[in-house]
Amino acid sequence: MSVRRVIAVFGLFVLLLSGCDGPADPAAETSTGVGPTAAAPVLRPGWQPLTVPAPPGGEGRLLLRDAAACAGRWFLVGGVVDAAGGTRPAAWTSVDGTTWTVVPVRADSFYGRQNVLSSVACRDGRAAVIGAKTGGAHGYPRISTWRQLPDGTLVEVQASFETFGGPTAVNVSRLAAGAPGWLIVGNRSAGAASWVSSPDAAEFALVEGAPELASDPVGVTWAFDAVAAPPGWLAVGGLLPAGRIDRDPAVWSSPDGRSWRRTVLPGGPEYEEMQRVTLVGGVPVAVGLRGATFGAWRQEASGWVAAGTFGRRAGAGVPGVASLVAAGDRLVVAVTDGARHSVWVSADRGGSWREAAMPLDVSAGVDRDVALVAVGDRWWLAADDGTRAGLWSAAGVGA
């Protein structure tokens, strides 16, 4: 896909969002049904700041982008940007979630040495990562994947340019880990796509044009996120039906990341899509856009159903879901409404939501991000406001 076509698709996306459901309401809202209800008091987690040590390689500002935890090990990834705007990859790990140490990073390519690591997943206490650096004649993101060796070093994985780039590339979204191995979801010019790897994350194979996952006469597909869900994988996103200008939420299931079965939820007049998915108590719950609000969906015995809504789109900015995790029996989600980032908590699998105060005010924009990770009822928040970044933890937050 050409750069011009990518820009055009993004412009259409912004235009669709700006026309959803009239003017934005700046007041935060919660909902247990179709319509919003009065705002509940904001939760006040007891945030505790944690120290993230500076990695070697020269001075610069830390960039924090994503976090994951498994098997008694925590991971945090991002990068470092120097005064001249140059970047390099960086990662950290912890065995208790409190004391963090730098992970040795070994890049093997020109763009790998400039990567900012954006998505991390882990299985059996070992991490794999996606990173990228925009560059080249056409300004495409140069994607790299990274895997962790037994000695703890994070190393760049060599791949052909066409694996993540090439003439049919659109984007690479999120990395997931599970019993089958590793899965990346993203999009190609043919629609939603996946990349699968064996348990060592040493090589990813592109699955492009797969029936039901890719676009077809029914509509144009787009994938945002995935989670391991026995017996395989669950991916979420949206489908733009033929003859329509707004997406409907879509879910894909797969035993192996290669063959997929699509489920499109009934859509109304609003723009709807699932952007993040996780399991809470073994139940898949997704969060995404529902018109001018954010909405949740969960899988029940009868199938996928719409749950509660929360928040409102703000102004002309582009809203989105940055992170979604299960903290014990609660869901915690970080979103941007187009103007600012916020964190919300649900104790009933997405039925109702309350906003939780953040330790750092983060406005919307480039190089600003919020990421979450949780173990039990304790959760961690990494926030980057474009001038500084930090990591905090909190425990036992009710909703």
Rank of each mutant, 00 (worst) to 15 (best):
A177F: 08
G72W: 06
G33A: 14
R258S: 14
G219T: 00
A28T: 06
R65H: 04
F294K: 01
E273S: 13
T309W: 13
V227L: 09
T99A: 15
A399E: 06
A107E: 12
L175P: 01
V157R: 09
G136W: 05
T37Y: 09
L239A: 11
A8K: 12
V287C: 14
A364W: 11
G282D: 04
T153R: 14
R340F: 12
A201V: 02
A339N: 01
S346L: 08
R123Q: 07
F75N: 05
I7N: 15
A316K: 06
S173K: 08
L289C: 02
G291M: 05
S352I: 07
R368M: 04
I184V: 15
L234G: 07
G136H: 02
R113K: 12
L289T: 14
A39W: 11
V280S: 12
D66V: 07
T37I: 05
R349T: 10
G295R: 12
V34F: 15
A54I: 00
V287I: 14
R61I: 03
R368S: 10
P241G: 12
F13W: 12
R378Y: 01
V14Q: 05
T87C: 13
D369E: 09
E162N: 13
V375N: 01
G376D: 05
A38M: 10
S119H: 09
T153D: 04
A67F: 04
P266Q: 04
P36W: 12
G112I: 00
L183E: 10
A395S: 14
G315N: 06
S323K: 00
G350M: 04
L62K: 02
G243W: 06
I7S: 14
R65Y: 06
V373C: 14
G267K: 09
G97C: 05
A71L: 03
G78L: 09
L183T: 03
